[in-house]
Amino acid sequence: MKNHFLFLLGLSFFMFVSCEKDDDHHDECHECHLEIMMTNGTIDHSTDIGEFCGDDLHDVEENGWTVNTAFEFDGVTYEEGHQFTADQVHCEEHADHDDHDHD
């Protein structure tokens, strides 16, 4: 009986410790892009702004992104210092629809 109990206690400890959730995403790095409203009313997500890690990732998700080098998109020039809001910055991952199958 004692052995059974100790075995199961050990098993439960293993299950929960080994699967501990990594809540702290501040050490992670993710590619981010801008959401830009086009002149025809559609929304574009093709403007990448690079990879952000740790506190930088948190900062860009919380405060948005400031243009550091002017760029033109859809006929609009976004000057250096232009501020994109946090809602306009996306760092979530998307599905990867490549051509190889792992089936």
Partner: peptide
């Protein structure tokens, strides 16, 4: 099936992957 644009206008290719890693 998350749609950043919220308009449900995306294609199924944009929310599916052809392989699993």
């Amino acid at each position: 099936a998350h749609d950043c644009d919220g308009l449900n206008l995306i294609t199924i290719e944009e929310i599916t992957s052809s392989s699993l890693d």
